[in-house]
Structures are given as C-alpha cells and as structure tokens.
Write a protein that binds this DNA or RNA. Structure first.
Lengths: 191, 191
DNA sequence: TCATCCGTCTAGCGATGCTAGAATCTGGAG
DNA sequence: CTCCAGATTCTAGCATCGCTAGACGGATGA
C-alpha cells in the first residue's frame, strides 16, 4: 500500500515540476518558447506525459496563472498592512505594478492569456478569489462613500491598462512615475 | 504604358481586398480563424500571393490595425465636438468604449496583438499619431492644470483596462455603467 | 516464475506560417 | 498571326505546432 502513496507523491512532484518549468521557461524566453516538445525536453520526459497531468497546454498556462494569483495576493496583503489610507492606496498600487514588472510572463498568463479561468463565478478557484479580495480590502479602506467593489474594479483596470500598454510599447517608459502619481491623486479625491 | 498603371491599380485593389477580408473574417470568426490558407481561399488566390503584398501574417494584422486607428480618430473627433468640457470627457470615453465594443477584433489588432507598430516614435505612422492626437485634444479641454499628455495616457489606460478586462471575463458585465460613471467622476475632479 | 497491467515512449496526424521551383499567362517583336 | 521573354501565380513541400494512438517496457501481485 505504501508504493501506492509513493506513486502519488512522485506524480504530484512531477506535476509541480511541469508548472515550475513552464513558468521559468516563459519568464526567461517568453511564452512562445513554451512548446509542448520543449517543455517535455526540459522536464526530461516525453510529450504525452504532459497530457497525463493536464488536459492541454492551456491548462498548464492556467496552472501557472493560479500560482501567480496566490503570490500576488500575498504581496498585496503585505502592502496594505501599512498605516494611513492615503499611503495604503499608493502601496497597493506600487506593489501591484512591481509584481507585474518582475513577473511579466506570469502576469500575462494571469490577465491576458488563459481564458478558461472562471473569474467572478461560483466555481472560481480560491487563489483567484483571494487575489481580488486582497485588492478589495486594500481599496475599501479609503472608499469613503464610493462603492468599494466598483472602486476596486476601476482602480484595478487603470493599473492593468497602464501595465499592458506600457509593456506593448504603447506608452513611453519615461512618464511611468508621473502617470502613477496622477492616477493616485485622482482616485484619492472623493468628490 | 497604360497596362502598367492598370497592373498597379489592380495590385492596390487586391491589397485592400486582403486587408478588408482579414478584418471581416477576424470580426466574424475571431483572429484564430484568420489563417493564411483561409484568407487565400476567401480572396480566391493562393497563399503565396499574400506574401507578395505583405511580409507575413503580422504585417496583415498591422494593416488592419492601421485602418482601425483612422476610424477611431474620426469617431473621437466627432465625439469631442460637443459643448462643455464635462460632457466632452464623457462623450470621448463613451465613443472609445463603443468603438471597442463594436469592433472587438479590430480593437485587439490595434491594442493587444500587433507588436511591430512603432507607437511613440519618430517613424510612427500617421493614423496612429492622429488617433492619439484626437484623444489628447479631447482630454486637454478639461486638463485644468494637469499635464494634458499624462492625463490623456492615464485616461486611455483606464479605459483600455476596463475594456480588456471586461472582454476576458475578468470583470462582470453587470457593473459596466457604474464603473464608467465612477471613472468619469474621478477624472473630472481636479483636486 | 510468470502473466498482467500500468506507465512511458515512439511515431504519426492534421494544421500552422512560410517558400522554392514549376507552370501559366501576358504583352510586345518579328 | 506567331512566338518568345518576362512577370505572375500556383502546386507542392518544409519545419513546427498541439495532441494522440498504439507499441513497448518494467514493476506488481499470484
């Protein structure tokens, strides 16, 4: 009976190996380099093994994304644990942008690629829920009469827009800080 | 000598036919359906003909995107020709979102796919420049002390974020109007 | 010791973007 | 009107992609 457990343990390890390898590969050479053949090579197994763990390549990307949500939630919570609400928004925003900048491929998997992750639904995976909750609880501190959920969604959208447009070369790298400052100013004003 | 001109005219027509067909196909069945084979079928020529007009598939997508920028600029200018600055921002934002909603595939080509279009550079194509100018001149009306360029970039980012997150199912379709209202409120406040 | 079964790999399918070389058509000279 | 030269278009194929069927192998239990 013990061999059965060992088997399952090894399977779980290989599962993690696949996810971690995919992530590392994507981060170092971009998602285009993450082909099933290359990934299989990297983990030193053949392609079909991947499909015994995941339904397809999309599922692997989704698994990587899920890891990302967990990490993002941790970082956002850490950032919101500071003092006053004014700096809380700034900390939150900076933490979010830093995360996106440090893990571009991961961020892509989370917010631009994997379409099959159910976001605001009943079967939304825990890490996803947690990520949004971290944002929400941070933003709610200075909602000041405004609807916290709506406010969170808009702040999030603005940050995401800045990130994704910057990355694609649509926004000049120079004004980064000025844009963030303006955004923070606008959203701390209750009006 | 006339036949030479006719040749060139026909070439130009076929060039347009390719772009228009790619756009229509993308809009009706998504960009995944726009394969070189399918596109060649649709225009009733063989694949290599495409490559006598464009360097590759990316160049075709870029050509479609360019069309989009021209149209977007026109719509934005029309929207900003209204009266007071308060409603100008709202008109601008609604026009932008309506454009994105009515032409999802086109919008994708403009702002998420084609990476090879030089955006804020010296060799930026005219339609691109014009598109941003239309936004800028609209936003500048109510800048009210704030840096117009920075303000434009941030407003644009926020709108883009809303659009792209909504489309990917990351934001619920329900709060659409509320989010837009909140965004408008925040950005009309000068503070 | 042997048969069974689970796990893994080899080999291959259809589809992709792109291209070389054959085939065809066009236009102008004799 | 004929025929050749040059441009144009097509057929066929390459490498690569995600994915899978079926052969193969070794570990497990009788």
């Amino acid at each position: 009976m013990s061999t059965q457990q060992r088997r399952e343990r090894e399977r779980a390890q290989r599962h993690d190996l696949i996810v971690k390898t995919a992530r590392k590969l994507a981060e170092s050479e971009g998602w285009d380099a993450v082909t099933t053949r290359r990934l299989a090579d990297e983990i030193e197994y053949s392609q079909p093994v991947l499909y015994s763990h995941f339904a397809g390549k999309d599922a692997i990307v989704a698994a990587v994304a899920l890891e990302g949500f967990t990490e993002l939630a941790v970082r956002l919570r850490a950032a919101t644990r500071t003092g006053e609400p004014r700096t809380a928004l700034e900390g939150l925003a900076r933490a979010y942008m830093a995360f996106a900048e440090e893990n571009p491929a991961l961020y892509d998997a989370m917010f631009t690629m994997a379409v099959d992750l159910p976001f605001g639904q009943d079967d939304t995976p825990e890490p996803l829920r947690d990520g949004f909750q971290a944002l929400l609880s941070g933003v709610a501190q200075f909602a000041d009469g405004r609807d916290p959920a709506i406010l969170t969604e808009v702040v999030w959208s603005a940050l995401h827009g800045l990130i994704v447009l910057s990355r694609g070369g649509r926004l000049p790298a120079s004004g980064r800080e000025a844009r963030l400052r303006l955004l923070l100013d606008q959203f701390s004003a209750t009006r």
